[in-house]
Simulated assay, not measured.
Amino acid sequence: MSQYALLELDMDGTLLDDEQRVSDENKRAIEEAMRAGVTVILSTGRGFVNAVPYAEELGLTGPMVTVNGGEVWKNPNELHLRHLLERSKVQQMYEVSQKYDTWFWAYSIQGIYNKEKWTAVIEKEDWLKFGYYNEDDEVRGKIMDELHQIGGLELTNSSPYNIEINPLGIHKATGVQSVCELLGLSMDQVVSIGDSLNDLAVIQQSGLGAAMGNAQDAVKEAADVVVATNNEHGVAELIYKYML
Rank of each mutant, 00 (worst) to 15 (best):
M1T: 03
L7W: 10
E8T: 14
D10W: 06
D10F: 03
L15Y: 04
L15I: 06
L15C: 06
L15M: 04
D17E: 05
Q20W: 05
V22L: 08
N26E: 02
R28N: 08
A29M: 03
R35V: 05
I41L: 01
L42A: 09
G45T: 07
R46G: 10
G47F: 06
V49C: 13
N50L: 12
V52H: 03
P53S: 11
P53L: 13
G62S: 11
P63W: 13
V65E: 07
V65R: 07
T66C: 13
G69K: 01
V72I: 15
K74L: 13
N75S: 14
L79I: 15
R82P: 03
E86Q: 14
K89R: 15
Q92H: 03
E95S: 13
V96Y: 12
Q98W: 09
Q98A: 12
K99N: 12
D101G: 13
D101M: 14
Y107L: 01
S108A: 14
I109P: 00
G111E: 14
I112F: 09
I112K: 00
K115W: 05
K117A: 09
K117H: 14
T119N: 14
K129P: 10
F130G: 07
N134K: 01
N134P: 04
D136W: 04
V139P: 05
G141M: 07
I143A: 05
M144G: 04
D145C: 00
L153C: 02
L153M: 01
N157C: 13
Y161Q: 12
N162R: 00
N162S: 11
I163Y: 00
E164L: 07
E164Q: 01
N166R: 06
G169D: 00
I170F: 07
H171F: 03
H171C: 04
K172N: 00
K172M: 02
S178L: 00
S178Y: 00
E181M: 09
L182S: 01
L183G: 07
G184S: 09
L185A: 08
L185Q: 01
S186W: 04
V191K: 01
S192N: 07
S192W: 09
G194C: 06
D195T: 08
L197Q: 14
L197Y: 12
A201T: 11
V202A: 08
V202C: 00
I203R: 11
Q205Y: 00
S206F: 10
L208H: 10
A210K: 11
A215M: 10
A215I: 09
A215D: 11
A215N: 02
Q216M: 12
A218T: 06
A222F: 09
A223Y: 11
V225P: 13
V226E: 14
T229A: 13
N231A: 02
V235P: 08
L238N: 03
I239V: 15
Y242P: 12
L244S: 11
